[in-house]
Design a protein around this nucleic acid. Structure first.
Lengths: 350, 350
DNA sequence: ACTTTTTTTGCATACGTATGCTAAATTCTG
DNA sequence: CAGAATTTAGCATACGTATGCAAAAAAAGT
């Protein structure tokens, strides 16, 4: 009896104080625990009177339903996983921000997972052990493997900005082939004759489709791709690529770059390393229309992916999972728009 | 008896198939459920033999412990919430990426929360109902309010890159006052005489400290701040601010900008709108050292925050929560470094 | 007023794992 | 080899909420 009181006093910072549960609320409101639960669940029937009593008690105790317990019971976590490899390309911050916001509006929450070369497997397993309501994959690395694992667990998966490589997974992409065509058409229309391409990762469907579309437009216009170098979606490699392209005897008069992110490095290298003018000496076109493309330093002509539409489609797919066993994947392709800025010149035919 | 079989066949995509639980594994391994649980928990005692049996059965059934159930039982979710307002400033993608990676290495996962002006309250409540192990606040909006709520619930909170406004919350910041001094000293040393400041949000401690340090260095050097305009951490406002500063009869010869993000807009506006040269006509200095600062187009002299150190400190604080009722907050201040690039000129005294 | 229908309530149990406690098995000790 | 000390296994219960079911209450119908 020396100090039992001290052990029981609950100070504000007392970490031993138990959280308020629906049972506490029920006791205070003089109803059953079920009544409390029903009050806080949508689509359940409670009389106005009990609801009021419960709400009052809940407020007084500052009760908040425990999402974890709820998940265990309903098998619905309201958590969506987003897998990506890096934020380096400014497109991804934009995507994650918009996606998170859109999901929050639907009462979902976002669990971020940064895939890495090494730890991918161990951490994948961990993320999968949270009863995710869905997963958005915006990372090339191990995408199809992870997609399969999720599918096996019955978790809806959406591949964002990458096509399904044979596996039957839902996906949202923009119309990259058309994007490539648009770029080709614009460059031809503005009088370019030697059009080169700096590619992204060769195993990326986005890159392939963009190149494919570009080549189609060139053929239609009676020409072929003038040159090509690989930038691998990395700025350093893109810089090296443009140095190589401009080091040849016959130089391109326009360079199409597989992503805006690389295009910035290309423009910088052209201007500050090779001392060439953009667009007077070389035109540059990118893809994605990330925020920086509009900056005065770049004024990059590019093809805009409508992140907004892609996000909307993604959320839609996540919320309405395909019927099980359906086997056929849903692939949403969002239209894209050419944004003409100042990085493309009008050239007079020689 | 017409089609009972069809109803029971479990196809791969059959969403009705129940998840594998520790009980299933126990049955298959011929041990109790506790044995399975102990096998998958660290720091518990199981004999090698049972462990092997369990692991084997688990592998055969591809069992994965249910993190949600585990959370309910242990009151430890292994989820850390990150609250921020926007990814616009490239510093934040970098921070979130590094923080997530660091947390993943500790077996923690990241729940992202994008604070908004409107929905802040409702969504806060939701995020708090997941038994978060900790919260990192990297958003100015409602920071102190949220911090208090978390503290009341016994959730460790760390304010990232913003000081605690009186409230006793742990925080990690860089030495912004010293950063300001460094900038002032450098500009004075390189012969600048009319040093102006474009500020961030006035209610941000980061901004205040940077300005404070800058003014101190100026006073020490026998001068005062030449002019000041508010950029509010937004590029458009920063552009307007620089236009205003350069529109005066007496123009600054150096502009210190409260963030790199704004500094890019300032440089672009100087060059492409006002047709001035950087650094020949005006030097520009930023804060943060985001990736773009190193780009050839900007070559921005800036003060680097060591995101790596800040992240490490944040994780450290999260993992070792202060003793309850301690009342005194831990405030880690990380040293910063001036990164000299080409946006500052050497001026000869007139 | 009495039956029928509808709504509301509470009871009991399930969700999947962790863990205190006790009993059993094992190892150690002399 | 007996007994003590230690390790390991299993039982039972807790974590906090949701929900099927049946009883109770209220509303509607005649």
């Amino acid at each position: 009896m020396t100090r039992p009181m001290a052990d029981k006093v609950a100070t504000a910072a007392d970490s031993t104080k138990r959280a308020v549960t629906s049972i506490d609320v029920a006791a205070r409101a003089g109803v059953s625990q079920s009544a409390v639960s029903r009050t806080f669940s949508v689509g359940t029937s409670v009389s106005d009177e009990t609801r009021k009593k419960v709400m009052r008690a809940a407020r007084e105790l500052s009760y908040r339903p425990n999402a974890i317990a709820r998940t265990l019971s309903t098998r619905q976590s309201n958590i969506i996983g987003i897998v990506l490899s890096t934020f380096e390309n400014q497109l991804y911050p934009v995507v994650v921000e918009q996606l998170s916001r859109a999901l929050q509006l639907q009462g979902k929450h976002t669990m971020l997972f940064l895939a890495d070369k090494q730890d991918s497997d161990s951490a994948f397993n961990e993320i999968l052990s949270y009863q995710l309501d869905g997963v958005v994959i915006a990372s090339a690395t191990l995408a199809s493997k992870l997609a399969k694992q999720c599918a096996d667990m019955g978790i809806p998966v959406v591949m964002f900005n990458r096509a399904t490589d044979g596996t039957s997974t839902d996906s949202v992409t923009s119309d990259n082939r058309r994007a490539g065509q648009l770029v080709g058409e614009t460059l031809i229309a503005s009088g370019h004759q030697r059009i080169a391409y700096i590619s992204g990762r060769e195993d990326s469907s986005t890159n392939r489709d963009r190149e494919h579309g570009l080549r189609e437009a060139l053929v239609t216009g009676g020409m072929v791709l003038f040159a090509k170098a690989n930038g691998n979606y990395e700025q350093a490699q893109a810089s090296a690529a443009v140095v190589k392209l401009m080091g040849e005897a016959k130089k391109p008069d326009a360079i199409v770059v597989a992503s805006d992110h690389m295009a910035f490095a290309v423009i910088d290298t052209l201007r500050y390393t090779l001392h060439l003018r953009v667009p007077e000496d070389v035109s540059v076109v990118g893809y994605d229309d990330v925020p920086q493309s509009a900056w005065l330093a770049y004024q990059l002509t590019t093809v805009a992916q409508s992140v907004e539409k892609m996000v909307r489609a993604t959320v839609e797919l996540l919320m309405t999972p395909a019927a099980p066993g359906e086997g056929v994947s849903r692939n949403v392709v969002v239209a894209c728009t050419l944004i003409a800025r100042a990085s493309v010149a009008k050239r007079v035919r020689a």
